[in-house]
Simulated assay, not measured.
Amino acid sequence: MSFVTAVVGANFVSVTADGRGRTPEGVIINENILKFVRPRENLVIAYTGIKEACEDILATCKVDIKKGGLNTITKSINEILNSDKYEGTKLSFIVAGRNEQNINQLSTISNYERNTDEIAIGNEMRIAHSGSNKINDNNIDFIKIHNMYMESLKNIRNIQDVVNAQFSFNNSVAEIDDSVNRNIKHVIF
């Protein structure tokens, strides 16, 4: 699998992703895969699952991801993702950035989990993560790591604290899940 985190505030978006790429059979093929695209300055689309399938979905989007609105892009990805073509795969996307109303938004789209759309207002942060085979296993180690991550986000003073929390979360997950590595890619705006 992969591991991607996103934290969105009213004035920032921060997304991290590990760099491990594996075949559907689990063979590691690359330790420095980029698992997000930034089609424009105020939008990032991250994904987990089979990289080629995720990239195919983005390429066949009915909306130009360089020009379309966040909600329109999210809707198009969801329609393609939940088509028969991708049945039986575990794919998910995190779309973060400025929406059509020029407000920071965090949306998650998945063919195996509940989708979400959340607006960042005032000092509130919106948080999402996807990937890692340990997330949905009720894995006690993951639960502890996740709780520490959430606690660290309560105590942030600046954007660097957010980034540090995301990196620490990724690295802790990498310790318990061999589908995740510590070669973190990051985008912030």
Rank of each mutant, 00 (worst) to 15 (best):
V4W: 03
T5Q: 06
A6N: 06
A6T: 04
V7Q: 07
V8E: 07
V8K: 09
V8S: 05
G9M: 05
N11S: 14
N11P: 05
F12P: 09
F12V: 08
F12I: 13
V15P: 08
T16F: 05
D18H: 02
G19E: 05
R20W: 00
R22Y: 04
P24Q: 07
E25M: 11
V27W: 07
I29T: 14
N30E: 07
N30P: 04
N32F: 14
N32G: 10
N32P: 10
N32D: 14
L34P: 07
L34K: 15
L34Y: 10
K35M: 02
K35A: 01
K35Q: 02
P39V: 02
R40F: 00
L43H: 04
T48P: 08
T48F: 01
T48E: 11
E52C: 04
E52M: 10
E55R: 11
D56C: 08
I57E: 07
I57T: 08
I57W: 07
I57M: 08
L58P: 08
D64T: 00
I65F: 05
K66E: 05
K66I: 00
G68M: 00
G68W: 00
L70I: 06
T72Y: 00
K75W: 01
L81E: 02
N82Q: 06
N82C: 06
Y86N: 08
E87Q: 15
E87K: 15
E87W: 11
T89V: 07
L91E: 09
S92L: 04
G97I: 05
E100K: 13
N102Y: 05
Q105L: 12
L106E: 06
S110E: 12
S110I: 10
N111V: 09
N111T: 11
N111L: 12
Y112M: 06
N115V: 05
D117H: 14
D117S: 15
I119W: 06
I121W: 02
N123H: 07
E124N: 12
E124P: 01
H129T: 08
I135S: 05
N139F: 00
I145D: 09
H146I: 00
N147C: 10
N147S: 15
Y149V: 09
Y149M: 14
M150Q: 13
M150R: 13
S152P: 03
L153P: 04
K154T: 09
N155Y: 12
N155E: 13
N155R: 14
R157D: 11
R157Q: 13
V162L: 06
V163P: 02
V163H: 10
N164H: 06
F167M: 09
S172T: 01
S172M: 09
V173S: 02
V173I: 14
A174W: 03
I176D: 01
D178S: 12
N181P: 13
I188T: 15
F189A: 11
